[in-house]
């Protein structure tokens, strides 16, 4: 009798389990379909085209000083590009600032090439100036593909940047009260069907940090982290973060520092 009851209960549980399973399976199927699409995109990532353009720009003599960027110090010594992106942002003595790859390129354009970068900073996203900067960042990031993220927070200014980034991450405002953490502050949630990384965790930070710059298939555009962050703020209904400003570097520092030990997978590709 007891045994029979037990069997009945087990069957009942199995049925309930099955019903819940099918409901979940349908949702998973949609996500799986998106995953398969992402996988297919990886073969032939158009980001390669931008890497090639970025490399040309890096090596081409330009500006009033008619010099190339090849002697630019990205933190690992003048001219060393390989592995540099995986160690950025970092503190630079010459500027007495913590800089990411993109703001460091601006410094090199100024000092080595004699270019007035103001128009690069103010140029709209998608303008030829910003496309140049994105291509250069894509090239630099590609030279750190498969390299481990190793970002230092040892220098007081690096530590400060990390902490400011964390504070910025939680700063809510604007008509919608949005902060970065509104969307990226919980584990395992989505906007519509888009899964969102939980940035304060090493895994979440890495899934964001190590996959940008990325080619966006839907827009046909190459985005560096600066553009990625600017678009987050746009959707947050905030004003526009200034290219290379401390706000952007602080958030990058927070992400990069939190993802230490992860492997760079740049340039990435997004749907």
């Amino acid at each position: 009798m007891t045994r029979r009851f037990a069997v009945g209960l087990a069957t009942c549980l199995a049925v309930a389990g099955f019903a819940a399973g099918t409901a979940r399976a349908e949702g998973d199927k949609t996500i799986e379909g998106i995953e398969a699409y992402r996988e297919a995109l990886k073969d032939g990532n158009p980001a390669e085209l931008f890497e090639a353009q970025g490399e040309d720009l890096w090596k081409k003599k330009a500006g009033p000083k008619n010099a190339s960027l090849e002697t630019c110090d990205l933190g690992m010594g003048p001219g060393v590009v390989a592995g540099a992106y995986a160690h950025l942002p970092r503190y630079f003595k010459d500027t007495d600032k913590v800089q990411d790859a993109e703001s460091r390129v601006l410094t090199c354009m100024t000092t080595i090439q004699g270019i007035d970068v103001a128009k690069y900073v103010s140029a709209r996203w998608g303008s030829p100036e910003k496309d140049e900067l994105n291509a250069i960042a894509t090239f630099i990031s590609g030279m750190s593909k498969d390299v481990k993220v190793e970002v230092s927070t040892a220098h007081p200014k690096e530590r400060q940047m990390f902490e400011l980034g964390k504070r910025m991450f939680y700063y809510g405002g604007g008509p919608h009260d949005f902060s970065c953490s509104t969307c990226h502050g919980q584990e395992g949630v989505r906007i519509r069907l888009q899964e969102l990384p939980y940035i304060p965790s090493p895994k979440g930070a890495a899934s964001g940090w190590t996959s940008w710059p990325a080619y966006r298939v839907s827009a046909g555009q190459m985005w560096g982290m600066q553009w990625r962050l600017a678009d987050c703020f746009r959707q947050q209904r905030f004003p526009e973060p200034i290219y290379g400003s401390d706000v952007t570097i602080a958030l990058s520092m927070f992400m990069a520092g939190t993802s230490n030990g992860a492997t760079m997978n740049t340039p990435g590709i997004k749907r």
Binding site: P156, E163, S245
Partner: peptide, 18 residues
């Protein structure tokens, strides 16, 4: 907030950042 992320530094960052 940790070292360096005091109100004054944070406000200065906001002000120059947007």
């Amino acid at each position: 907030w940790g070292p360096g992320a005091d109100d004054a530094a944070f406000q200065a960052m906001l002000k120059s950042g947007f």
